[in-house]
Design a protein around this nucleic acid. Structure first.
Length: 489
RNA sequence: GGCGCCAUAGCCAAGUGGUAAGGCAAGGGUCUGCAAAACCCUCAUUCCCCGGUUCGAAUCCGGGUGGCGCCUCCA
Protein backbone atom coordinates (compact mmCIF):
# COMPACT_ATOMS: atom_id res chain seq x y z
CA UNK A 1 0.00 0.00 0.00
CA UNK A 2 1.38 3.33 -0.92
CA UNK A 3 0.69 5.57 2.02
CA UNK A 4 -0.78 8.88 0.97
CA UNK A 5 0.56 12.01 2.60
CA UNK A 6 -1.59 13.09 5.52
CA UNK A 7 -3.10 16.53 5.16
CA UNK A 8 -4.77 18.34 8.02
CA UNK A 9 -7.00 21.40 8.07
CA UNK A 10 -5.23 24.07 10.10
CA UNK A 11 -7.52 26.68 11.61
CA UNK A 12 -4.66 29.16 11.64
CA UNK A 13 -4.32 29.09 7.85
CA UNK A 14 -7.89 27.99 7.18
CA UNK A 15 -6.52 25.44 4.75
CA UNK A 16 -5.36 21.87 4.61
CA UNK A 17 -1.64 21.52 5.13
CA UNK A 18 0.64 18.49 5.01
CA UNK A 19 1.27 16.94 8.39
CA UNK A 20 4.92 17.71 9.07
CA UNK A 21 5.87 16.51 12.53
CA UNK A 22 8.69 18.33 14.29
CA UNK A 23 10.38 15.00 14.78
CA UNK A 24 9.88 12.62 11.88
CA UNK A 25 7.76 9.68 12.87
CA UNK A 26 6.53 11.27 16.08
CA UNK A 27 3.45 13.36 16.73
CA UNK A 28 2.66 15.35 19.86
CA UNK A 29 -1.00 16.23 20.25
CA UNK A 30 -2.77 18.19 22.94
CA UNK A 31 -6.54 18.02 23.18
CA UNK A 32 -8.44 20.30 25.54
CA UNK A 33 -10.26 17.97 27.88
CA UNK A 34 -13.31 18.45 30.04
CA UNK A 35 -13.84 20.92 32.82
CA UNK A 36 -15.03 18.48 35.42
CA UNK A 37 -17.99 20.07 37.13
CA UNK A 38 -20.71 17.79 35.74
CA UNK A 39 -21.26 14.85 33.42
CA UNK A 40 -20.09 15.18 29.85
CA UNK A 41 -22.71 15.45 27.16
CA UNK A 42 -22.83 14.06 23.65
CA UNK A 43 -21.33 17.18 22.13
CA UNK A 44 -18.25 16.74 24.27
CA UNK A 45 -18.26 13.07 23.45
CA UNK A 46 -18.27 13.78 19.75
CA UNK A 47 -15.16 15.92 19.94
CA UNK A 48 -13.31 13.44 22.10
CA UNK A 49 -14.29 10.63 19.77
CA UNK A 50 -13.06 12.59 16.76
CA UNK A 51 -9.65 13.08 18.29
CA UNK A 52 -9.64 9.51 19.50
CA UNK A 53 -10.00 8.34 15.91
CA UNK A 54 -7.41 10.84 14.72
CA UNK A 55 -4.90 9.52 17.24
CA UNK A 56 -5.76 5.94 16.36
CA UNK A 57 -5.30 6.64 12.69
CA UNK A 58 -1.96 8.34 13.16
CA UNK A 59 -0.78 5.34 15.15
CA UNK A 60 -2.09 2.99 12.49
CA UNK A 61 0.05 4.92 10.06
CA UNK A 62 3.07 4.21 12.19
CA UNK A 63 3.47 7.48 14.04
CA UNK A 64 4.56 7.35 17.65
CA UNK A 65 1.87 9.61 19.04
CA UNK A 66 2.08 11.28 22.40
CA UNK A 67 -1.50 12.08 23.27
CA UNK A 68 -2.18 14.57 26.04
CA UNK A 69 -5.69 15.42 27.17
CA UNK A 70 -6.11 17.44 30.33
CA UNK A 71 -8.69 17.76 33.05
CA UNK A 72 -9.50 21.29 34.10
CA UNK A 73 -10.20 20.71 37.77
CA UNK A 74 -9.81 24.25 39.08
CA UNK A 75 -12.35 26.65 37.67
CA UNK A 76 -15.21 29.03 38.49
CA UNK A 77 -17.84 26.52 37.44
CA UNK A 78 -16.42 23.88 39.68
CA UNK A 79 -16.38 26.25 42.63
CA UNK A 80 -19.97 27.18 41.92
CA UNK A 81 -21.09 23.58 41.56
CA UNK A 82 -19.31 22.65 44.76
CA UNK A 83 -21.01 25.44 46.64
CA UNK A 84 -24.32 23.96 45.57
CA UNK A 85 -23.57 20.42 46.63
CA UNK A 86 -21.60 21.34 49.71
CA UNK A 87 -18.55 19.43 48.54
CA UNK A 88 -14.99 20.64 48.44
CA UNK A 89 -14.31 21.91 44.89
CA UNK A 90 -11.30 19.63 44.46
CA UNK A 91 -13.30 16.64 45.68
CA UNK A 92 -16.17 17.41 43.33
CA UNK A 93 -13.76 17.71 40.43
CA UNK A 94 -12.12 14.41 41.35
CA UNK A 95 -15.54 12.78 41.42
CA UNK A 96 -16.36 13.98 37.92
CA UNK A 97 -12.97 12.88 36.66
CA UNK A 98 -13.93 9.38 37.76
CA UNK A 99 -17.34 9.70 36.13
CA UNK A 100 -15.73 10.92 32.94
CA UNK A 101 -13.36 7.99 32.90
CA UNK A 102 -16.21 5.56 33.37
CA UNK A 103 -18.02 7.10 30.39
CA UNK A 104 -14.85 7.20 28.31
CA UNK A 105 -14.25 3.53 28.93
CA UNK A 106 -17.72 2.67 27.71
CA UNK A 107 -17.20 4.74 24.59
CA UNK A 108 -13.92 2.89 24.13
CA UNK A 109 -11.91 6.09 24.06
CA UNK A 110 -8.18 5.58 24.18
CA UNK A 111 -6.54 6.42 27.43
CA UNK A 112 -4.37 9.49 26.69
CA UNK A 113 -0.68 9.04 27.43
CA UNK A 114 -0.92 11.88 29.91
CA UNK A 115 -4.04 13.31 31.56
CA UNK A 116 -2.71 16.24 33.55
CA UNK A 117 -4.77 18.21 36.01
CA UNK A 118 -4.58 21.89 36.82
CA UNK A 119 -4.31 21.15 40.53
CA UNK A 120 -1.13 19.20 39.85
CA UNK A 121 0.43 21.82 37.59
CA UNK A 122 0.36 24.88 39.83
CA UNK A 123 4.15 25.40 40.07
CA UNK A 124 4.47 25.37 36.30
CA UNK A 125 1.57 27.77 35.95
CA UNK A 126 3.14 30.21 38.41
CA UNK A 127 6.50 29.98 36.64
CA UNK A 128 4.80 30.75 33.35
CA UNK A 129 3.06 33.80 34.76
CA UNK A 130 6.31 35.03 36.27
CA UNK A 131 7.87 34.77 32.84
CA UNK A 132 5.02 36.62 31.18
CA UNK A 133 5.37 39.48 33.64
CA UNK A 134 9.13 39.52 33.05
CA UNK A 135 8.50 39.64 29.31
CA UNK A 136 6.26 42.65 29.77
CA UNK A 137 3.07 41.12 28.45
CA UNK A 138 1.42 40.64 31.84
CA UNK A 139 0.95 42.81 34.88
CA UNK A 140 -0.11 42.50 38.47
CA UNK A 141 -3.13 44.39 39.71
CA UNK A 142 -3.85 43.84 43.36
CA UNK A 143 -3.83 40.11 43.92
CA UNK A 144 -4.68 39.45 40.28
CA UNK A 145 -2.44 39.11 37.28
CA UNK A 146 -3.63 39.97 33.78
CA UNK A 147 -2.37 39.32 30.32
CA UNK A 148 -2.03 42.57 28.42
CA UNK A 149 -3.36 41.87 24.98
CA UNK A 150 -2.05 45.03 23.37
CA UNK A 151 1.48 43.96 24.20
CA UNK A 152 1.20 40.77 22.21
CA UNK A 153 1.22 41.57 18.48
CA UNK A 154 -0.12 38.22 17.36
CA UNK A 155 -3.24 38.48 19.47
CA UNK A 156 -6.37 37.29 17.60
CA UNK A 157 -4.41 35.75 14.74
CA UNK A 158 -6.12 32.43 15.31
CA UNK A 159 -9.70 33.65 15.56
CA UNK A 160 -9.23 36.38 12.94
CA UNK A 161 -10.92 38.97 15.08
CA UNK A 162 -10.04 42.60 15.59
CA UNK A 163 -9.48 44.01 19.02
CA UNK A 164 -11.70 47.00 18.34
CA UNK A 165 -14.56 44.81 17.15
CA UNK A 166 -14.12 42.73 20.22
CA UNK A 167 -14.56 45.73 22.47
CA UNK A 168 -17.45 47.30 20.62
CA UNK A 169 -19.16 44.05 19.66
CA UNK A 170 -22.72 42.99 20.16
CA UNK A 171 -21.62 40.50 22.77
CA UNK A 172 -22.04 40.75 26.48
CA UNK A 173 -18.43 40.39 27.44
CA UNK A 174 -17.67 41.91 30.77
CA UNK A 175 -15.91 45.11 30.00
CA UNK A 176 -15.86 46.35 33.54
CA UNK A 177 -12.71 46.23 35.55
CA UNK A 178 -10.90 49.40 36.40
CA UNK A 179 -8.23 47.02 37.60
CA UNK A 180 -7.51 46.09 33.99
CA UNK A 181 -5.50 48.27 31.65
CA UNK A 182 -7.63 47.16 28.76
CA UNK A 183 -11.07 45.59 28.97
CA UNK A 184 -9.91 42.76 26.73
CA UNK A 185 -7.07 41.80 29.06
CA UNK A 186 -7.73 38.47 30.70
CA UNK A 187 -6.84 36.96 34.04
CA UNK A 188 -3.84 34.71 34.44
CA UNK A 189 -4.13 34.56 38.20
CA UNK A 190 -7.08 35.37 40.40
CA UNK A 191 -6.76 36.44 44.01
CA UNK A 192 -8.40 33.97 46.36
CA UNK A 193 -11.79 34.67 47.78
CA UNK A 194 -12.92 33.03 51.00
CA UNK A 195 -13.74 29.35 50.63
CA UNK A 196 -12.07 28.94 47.26
CA UNK A 197 -9.21 26.59 46.57
CA UNK A 198 -6.01 28.59 46.53
CA UNK A 199 -2.28 28.28 46.33
CA UNK A 200 0.57 30.50 47.46
CA UNK A 201 2.10 32.64 44.77
CA UNK A 202 4.28 35.74 44.39
CA UNK A 203 1.00 37.69 44.23
CA UNK A 204 -0.51 36.19 47.33
CA UNK A 205 -2.97 33.35 47.66
CA UNK A 206 -4.95 32.67 44.54
CA UNK A 207 -5.68 30.34 41.67
CA UNK A 208 -5.05 30.19 37.93
CA UNK A 209 -7.31 31.88 35.38
CA UNK A 210 -9.13 29.83 32.81
CA UNK A 211 -6.63 29.58 29.94
CA UNK A 212 -3.24 29.47 31.55
CA UNK A 213 -3.48 25.85 32.62
CA UNK A 214 -3.42 24.55 29.08
CA UNK A 215 -0.36 26.63 28.25
CA UNK A 216 1.43 25.20 31.26
CA UNK A 217 0.34 21.62 30.74
CA UNK A 218 1.06 21.47 27.03
CA UNK A 219 4.58 22.83 27.40
CA UNK A 220 5.23 20.59 30.38
CA UNK A 221 4.40 17.42 28.48
CA UNK A 222 4.93 18.31 24.82
CA UNK A 223 7.43 21.14 24.86
CA UNK A 224 7.11 24.78 23.89
CA UNK A 225 6.26 23.87 20.32
CA UNK A 226 4.33 20.77 19.35
CA UNK A 227 2.48 19.35 16.37
CA UNK A 228 -1.27 19.29 16.84
CA UNK A 229 -3.67 21.08 19.13
CA UNK A 230 -7.29 20.07 19.16
CA UNK A 231 -10.63 20.99 20.64
CA UNK A 232 -14.15 22.00 19.76
CA UNK A 233 -14.90 24.92 17.49
CA UNK A 234 -16.12 26.98 20.41
CA UNK A 235 -12.68 26.97 21.95
CA UNK A 236 -11.09 29.02 19.18
CA UNK A 237 -12.07 32.16 20.98
CA UNK A 238 -11.32 32.97 23.65
CA UNK A 239 -9.67 29.86 24.99
CA UNK A 240 -7.21 28.91 22.27
CA UNK A 241 -6.55 32.49 21.31
CA UNK A 242 -5.58 33.30 24.87
CA UNK A 243 -3.68 30.11 25.31
CA UNK A 244 -1.67 30.89 22.23
CA UNK A 245 -0.96 34.43 23.46
CA UNK A 246 0.26 33.16 26.81
CA UNK A 247 2.44 30.40 25.45
CA UNK A 248 3.97 32.42 22.66
CA UNK A 249 4.21 35.49 24.83
CA UNK A 250 6.31 33.47 27.24
CA UNK A 251 8.43 31.35 24.92
CA UNK A 252 8.63 33.52 21.84
CA UNK A 253 8.03 30.34 19.86
CA UNK A 254 5.12 29.00 17.89
CA UNK A 255 2.85 27.08 20.26
CA UNK A 256 1.76 24.44 17.81
CA UNK A 257 2.06 23.87 14.10
CA UNK A 258 -1.51 22.94 13.46
CA UNK A 259 -4.79 23.85 15.17
CA UNK A 260 -7.63 21.41 14.72
CA UNK A 261 -11.24 22.13 15.61
CA UNK A 262 -14.19 19.79 15.64
CA UNK A 263 -17.71 20.76 14.60
CA UNK A 264 -20.72 20.89 16.85
CA UNK A 265 -23.35 18.37 17.59
CA UNK A 266 -26.76 19.92 17.00
CA UNK A 267 -29.95 19.08 18.78
CA UNK A 268 -33.11 20.28 17.05
CA UNK A 269 -31.33 22.86 14.98
CA UNK A 270 -29.20 24.37 17.71
CA UNK A 271 -25.79 23.63 19.07
CA UNK A 272 -25.95 21.25 21.99
CA UNK A 273 -24.51 23.27 24.83
CA UNK A 274 -24.66 23.53 28.53
CA UNK A 275 -25.60 27.18 28.38
CA UNK A 276 -28.63 26.46 26.22
CA UNK A 277 -29.45 23.51 28.40
CA UNK A 278 -30.28 21.32 25.41
CA UNK A 279 -27.86 18.59 26.34
CA UNK A 280 -28.07 14.84 26.35
CA UNK A 281 -25.64 13.32 28.75
CA UNK A 282 -23.32 10.75 27.27
CA UNK A 283 -24.23 8.51 30.15
CA UNK A 284 -27.94 8.69 29.42
CA UNK A 285 -27.42 8.08 25.73
CA UNK A 286 -25.39 4.97 26.46
CA UNK A 287 -28.35 3.53 28.33
CA UNK A 288 -30.31 3.56 25.12
CA UNK A 289 -27.80 3.02 22.41
CA UNK A 290 -24.82 0.78 22.02
CA UNK A 291 -21.51 2.59 22.52
CA UNK A 292 -20.20 1.50 19.16
CA UNK A 293 -23.42 2.55 17.51
CA UNK A 294 -22.84 5.98 18.98
CA UNK A 295 -19.23 6.01 17.82
CA UNK A 296 -20.33 5.00 14.33
CA UNK A 297 -22.90 7.79 14.35
CA UNK A 298 -20.19 10.31 15.19
CA UNK A 299 -18.16 9.06 12.25
CA UNK A 300 -20.90 9.43 9.66
CA UNK A 301 -19.91 13.04 9.07
CA UNK A 302 -16.58 14.77 8.68
CA UNK A 303 -15.27 15.88 12.06
CA UNK A 304 -15.35 19.57 11.18
CA UNK A 305 -18.95 19.43 9.98
CA UNK A 306 -22.03 19.98 12.06
CA UNK A 307 -23.80 16.78 13.00
CA UNK A 308 -27.48 16.67 13.85
CA UNK A 309 -28.38 14.41 16.73
CA UNK A 310 -31.60 12.45 16.63
CA UNK A 311 -32.86 9.18 18.03
CA UNK A 312 -33.44 7.97 14.52
CA UNK A 313 -29.87 8.66 13.44
CA UNK A 314 -28.61 6.78 16.48
CA UNK A 315 -30.98 3.92 15.86
CA UNK A 316 -29.85 3.69 12.23
CA UNK A 317 -26.23 3.74 13.27
CA UNK A 318 -26.80 0.89 15.66
CA UNK A 319 -28.56 -1.03 12.92
CA UNK A 320 -25.52 -0.57 10.74
CA UNK A 321 -23.30 -1.91 13.50
CA UNK A 322 -25.50 -4.95 13.62
CA UNK A 323 -24.87 -5.55 9.94
CA UNK A 324 -21.12 -5.28 10.47
CA UNK A 325 -21.10 -7.64 13.41
CA UNK A 326 -23.45 -10.15 11.77
CA UNK A 327 -21.08 -10.23 8.85
CA UNK A 328 -18.02 -10.69 11.04
CA UNK A 329 -19.75 -13.43 12.97
CA UNK A 330 -20.35 -15.35 9.76
CA UNK A 331 -16.81 -14.76 8.57
CA UNK A 332 -15.22 -15.79 11.82
CA UNK A 333 -17.29 -18.97 12.05
CA UNK A 334 -16.35 -19.89 8.57
CA UNK A 335 -12.67 -19.17 8.94
CA UNK A 336 -12.44 -20.92 12.25
CA UNK A 337 -10.04 -23.85 12.28
CA UNK A 338 -9.16 -23.42 8.64
CA UNK A 339 -5.85 -22.45 7.26
CA UNK A 340 -5.11 -20.90 3.93
CA UNK A 341 -1.70 -20.66 2.43
CA UNK A 342 -0.52 -17.64 0.52
CA UNK A 343 -1.59 -17.37 -3.07
CA UNK A 344 -3.66 -15.38 -5.51
CA UNK A 345 -6.70 -13.49 -4.28
CA UNK A 346 -10.06 -12.72 -5.80
CA UNK A 347 -10.57 -9.08 -6.59
CA UNK A 348 -8.21 -6.80 -4.80
CA UNK A 349 -8.93 -6.77 -1.09
CA UNK A 350 -6.28 -4.12 -0.67
CA UNK A 351 -8.22 -1.67 -2.75
CA UNK A 352 -10.63 -1.11 0.13
CA UNK A 353 -7.75 -0.32 2.41
CA UNK A 354 -6.27 2.01 -0.17
CA UNK A 355 -9.56 3.88 -0.43
CA UNK A 356 -9.75 3.99 3.33
CA UNK A 357 -6.29 5.52 3.60
CA UNK A 358 -6.99 7.98 0.83
CA UNK A 359 -10.01 9.29 2.74
CA UNK A 360 -8.41 9.29 6.16
CA UNK A 361 -5.26 10.95 4.87
CA UNK A 362 -7.33 13.80 3.51
CA UNK A 363 -7.99 15.62 6.76
CA UNK A 364 -9.39 12.51 8.40
CA UNK A 365 -12.43 12.22 6.18
CA UNK A 366 -14.46 9.90 8.38
CA UNK A 367 -17.49 9.75 6.11
CA UNK A 368 -15.33 9.02 3.10
CA UNK A 369 -13.53 6.28 4.99
CA UNK A 370 -16.83 4.68 5.92
CA UNK A 371 -17.53 4.23 2.22
CA UNK A 372 -14.49 1.95 2.02
CA UNK A 373 -15.70 0.15 5.12
CA UNK A 374 -19.02 -0.54 3.41
CA UNK A 375 -17.18 -1.85 0.40
CA UNK A 376 -15.17 -4.42 2.27
CA UNK A 377 -18.19 -5.71 4.18
CA UNK A 378 -20.26 -6.04 1.04
CA UNK A 379 -17.41 -7.98 -0.58
CA UNK A 380 -17.17 -10.25 2.44
CA UNK A 381 -20.88 -11.07 2.25
CA UNK A 382 -20.78 -11.53 -1.46
CA UNK A 383 -17.97 -14.05 -1.24
CA UNK A 384 -19.72 -15.96 1.51
CA UNK A 385 -23.21 -15.98 0.00
CA UNK A 386 -22.88 -15.84 -3.75
CA UNK A 387 -19.21 -16.28 -4.58
CA UNK A 388 -18.59 -15.19 -8.16
CA UNK A 389 -15.82 -17.80 -8.43
CA UNK A 390 -15.94 -21.53 -7.84
CA UNK A 391 -12.49 -22.06 -6.36
CA UNK A 392 -13.22 -22.53 -2.65
CA UNK A 393 -9.63 -22.21 -1.60
CA UNK A 394 -9.34 -18.95 -3.50
CA UNK A 395 -12.51 -17.67 -1.85
CA UNK A 396 -11.33 -18.73 1.58
CA UNK A 397 -7.98 -17.13 1.11
CA UNK A 398 -9.61 -13.93 -0.04
CA UNK A 399 -11.90 -13.92 2.98
CA UNK A 400 -8.84 -14.13 5.19
CA UNK A 401 -7.33 -11.16 3.39
CA UNK A 402 -10.53 -9.14 3.63
CA UNK A 403 -10.88 -9.97 7.30
CA UNK A 404 -7.40 -8.58 7.77
CA UNK A 405 -8.39 -5.39 5.97
CA UNK A 406 -11.29 -5.05 8.39
CA UNK A 407 -8.90 -5.51 11.28
CA UNK A 408 -6.76 -2.64 10.06
CA UNK A 409 -9.79 -0.39 9.72
CA UNK A 410 -10.97 -1.47 13.16
CA UNK A 411 -7.77 -0.35 14.75
CA UNK A 412 -8.00 3.08 13.21
CA UNK A 413 -11.69 3.64 13.91
CA UNK A 414 -12.16 1.92 17.23
CA UNK A 415 -15.04 0.00 15.66
CA UNK A 416 -15.85 -3.71 15.49
CA UNK A 417 -13.06 -4.75 17.74
CA UNK A 418 -15.26 -6.86 19.96
CA UNK A 419 -16.12 -10.51 19.53
CA UNK A 420 -19.14 -10.46 17.21
CA UNK A 421 -21.20 -12.85 19.36
CA UNK A 422 -20.52 -10.76 22.43
CA UNK A 423 -21.61 -7.57 20.76
CA UNK A 424 -24.70 -9.15 19.21
CA UNK A 425 -25.74 -10.79 22.45
CA UNK A 426 -25.14 -7.66 24.49
CA UNK A 427 -27.28 -5.68 22.11
CA UNK A 428 -30.03 -8.26 22.24
CA UNK A 429 -29.94 -8.30 26.01
CA UNK A 430 -30.41 -4.58 26.10
CA UNK A 431 -33.32 -4.77 23.70
CA UNK A 432 -34.88 -7.65 25.60
CA UNK A 433 -34.73 -5.60 28.75
CA UNK A 434 -36.15 -2.53 27.06
CA UNK A 435 -39.08 -4.52 25.72
CA UNK A 436 -39.54 -6.55 28.85
CA UNK A 437 -39.40 -9.85 26.97
CA UNK A 438 -39.33 -13.22 28.65
CA UNK A 439 -36.44 -15.17 27.15
CA UNK A 440 -37.70 -18.51 28.45
CA UNK A 441 -41.04 -18.00 26.72
CA UNK A 442 -39.35 -17.02 23.49
CA UNK A 443 -37.24 -20.12 23.55
CA UNK A 444 -40.20 -22.32 24.38
CA UNK A 445 -42.10 -20.91 21.42
CA UNK A 446 -39.14 -21.53 19.15
CA UNK A 447 -38.91 -25.13 20.36
CA UNK A 448 -42.62 -25.60 19.72
CA UNK A 449 -42.29 -24.15 16.26
CA UNK A 450 -39.39 -26.41 15.42
CA UNK A 451 -41.41 -29.40 16.55
CA UNK A 452 -44.20 -28.28 14.26
CA UNK A 453 -41.77 -27.83 11.38
CA UNK A 454 -40.32 -31.28 11.94
CA UNK A 455 -43.85 -32.63 11.71
CA UNK A 456 -44.34 -30.52 8.56
CA UNK A 457 -47.13 -28.72 10.33
CA UNK A 458 -46.31 -25.44 8.62
CA UNK A 459 -49.51 -23.60 9.49
CA UNK A 460 -48.71 -24.10 13.16
CA UNK A 461 -45.08 -23.10 12.60
CA UNK A 462 -46.15 -19.92 10.85
CA UNK A 463 -48.65 -19.16 13.57
CA UNK A 464 -45.87 -19.34 16.16
CA UNK A 465 -43.63 -17.16 14.03
CA UNK A 466 -46.36 -14.57 13.74
CA UNK A 467 -47.01 -14.75 17.46
CA UNK A 468 -43.36 -14.07 18.23
CA UNK A 469 -43.24 -11.35 15.66
CA UNK A 470 -46.12 -9.63 17.39
CA UNK A 471 -44.07 -9.47 20.57
CA UNK A 472 -41.15 -8.03 18.64
CA UNK A 473 -39.12 -11.19 18.18
CA UNK A 474 -37.72 -12.08 14.80
CA UNK A 475 -36.59 -15.65 14.20
CA UNK A 476 -34.09 -16.87 11.65
CA UNK A 477 -33.56 -20.45 10.54
CA UNK A 478 -29.87 -20.93 9.98
CA UNK A 479 -27.62 -23.92 9.33
CA UNK A 480 -26.85 -23.86 13.04
CA UNK A 481 -30.48 -23.99 14.01
CA UNK A 482 -33.03 -21.34 14.77
CA UNK A 483 -31.72 -18.05 16.08
CA UNK A 484 -33.65 -15.02 17.18
CA UNK A 485 -33.27 -11.34 17.66
CA UNK A 486 -35.36 -8.42 18.71
CA UNK A 487 -36.85 -6.85 15.62
CA UNK A 488 -35.80 -3.32 14.98
CA UNK A 489 -38.56 -0.97 14.04
C1' G B 1 -22.85 45.63 14.50
C1' G B 2 -18.03 42.60 13.36
C1' C B 3 -16.14 37.82 11.82
C1' G B 4 -16.76 32.75 10.12
C1' C B 5 -19.01 28.12 8.43
C1' C B 6 -22.72 25.60 5.68
C1' A B 7 -26.62 24.69 1.46
C1' U B 8 -25.64 17.85 -2.96
C1' A B 9 -31.69 12.57 -4.26
C1' G B 10 -37.44 11.17 0.23
C1' C B 11 -33.61 11.32 4.47
C1' C B 12 -28.19 11.18 6.19
C1' A B 13 -23.66 12.28 3.59
C1' A B 14 -18.58 12.27 0.55
C1' G B 15 -16.70 14.88 -3.49
C1' U B 16 -13.95 21.39 -4.12
C1' G B 17 -11.95 22.50 -12.06
C1' G B 18 -12.87 17.14 -15.99
C1' U B 19 -18.22 15.25 -16.19
C1' A B 20 -22.23 13.06 -9.03
C1' A B 21 -18.72 7.89 -3.24
C1' G B 22 -21.27 5.49 0.57
C1' G B 23 -25.45 4.63 3.90
C1' C B 24 -30.84 4.63 5.15
C1' A B 25 -35.63 4.35 2.96
C1' A B 26 -38.35 2.59 -1.53
C1' G B 27 -39.40 -0.84 -5.84
C1' G B 28 -37.97 -5.50 -8.49
C1' G B 29 -35.21 -10.17 -8.18
C1' U B 30 -32.11 -14.55 -6.07
C1' C B 31 -32.26 -17.58 -1.75
C1' U B 32 -36.10 -19.75 1.81
C1' G B 33 -41.58 -24.77 3.39
C1' C B 34 -42.77 -19.44 4.82
C1' A B 35 -39.57 -15.80 6.74
C1' A B 36 -35.22 -13.15 8.41
C1' A B 37 -30.36 -12.09 7.02
C1' A B 38 -27.32 -11.67 2.85
C1' C B 39 -26.51 -10.75 -2.32
C1' C B 40 -27.97 -8.63 -7.31
C1' C B 41 -30.71 -4.75 -10.09
C1' U B 42 -33.31 0.09 -10.12
C1' C B 43 -33.26 4.87 -7.61
C1' A B 44 -29.77 13.07 -8.72
C1' U B 45 -28.44 14.81 -17.10
C1' U B 46 -27.78 17.14 -11.76
C1' C B 47 -25.45 19.65 -6.92
C1' C B 48 -30.26 26.70 -3.05
C1' C B 49 -31.04 31.07 -6.76
C1' C B 50 -28.95 34.79 -10.38
C1' G B 51 -24.80 36.43 -13.05
C1' G B 52 -19.43 35.80 -14.42
C1' U B 53 -14.52 33.20 -15.47
C1' U B 54 -13.22 28.64 -18.29
C1' C B 55 -12.76 24.19 -23.79
C1' G B 56 -15.09 22.46 -19.30
C1' A B 57 -17.81 24.34 -12.54
C1' A B 58 -21.46 20.98 -7.64
C1' U B 59 -16.37 22.58 -7.44
C1' C B 60 -13.38 29.27 -8.87
C1' C B 61 -15.32 34.72 -8.64
C1' G B 62 -19.43 38.41 -7.66
C1' G B 63 -24.42 39.16 -5.89
C1' G B 64 -28.74 37.16 -3.54
C1' U B 65 -31.70 33.74 -0.35
C1' G B 66 -31.87 30.32 3.68
C1' G B 67 -29.60 27.75 8.07
C1' C B 68 -25.84 27.58 11.87
C1' G B 69 -21.89 29.41 14.83
C1' C B 70 -18.19 32.78 17.35
C1' C B 71 -17.74 37.77 19.38
C1' U B 72 -19.97 35.91 27.08
C1' C B 73 -19.14 30.02 30.22
C1' C B 74 -19.19 26.17 26.39
C1' A B 75 -16.37 20.30 22.92
Amino acid sequence: MSAPEIRVFNTMQQAKVPLAPLTPGKVGIYVCGPTVYSFVHLGNARTFTSFDVIVRYLRARGFAVKYVRNYTDVDDKIIKAAAETGEEPIALAARFVREFEADATKLRLLQPDVSPKVSETIPEIIALIVKLIANGVAYQSGGDVYFEVRKFPGYLKLSKKKLDDLLEGGGERELKGEEKRNPADFALWKAARPGEPSWDSPWGKGRPGWHIECSAMSSKYLGETFDLHGGGLDLIFPHHENELAQSEGASGKTLCNCWMHGGFLDLEGAKMSKSLGNVVRLRDALEKVDAEGLRYFFLTTHYRQQLAFSDKALHDAEGRMEYFYETLKKVDERLDAKEFIAGPLHGEPQRFLNDFHAAMSDDFNFAGALSAVSGVFAELNLLMDKPPVKDKVLVGRTLVALREVVRQMSKALGLFERKPEDWLLARRDRQVKAKGLDVAKVEAAIAARNAARAAKNFPEADRLRAELKATGVEIMDTPRGTEWKVASE
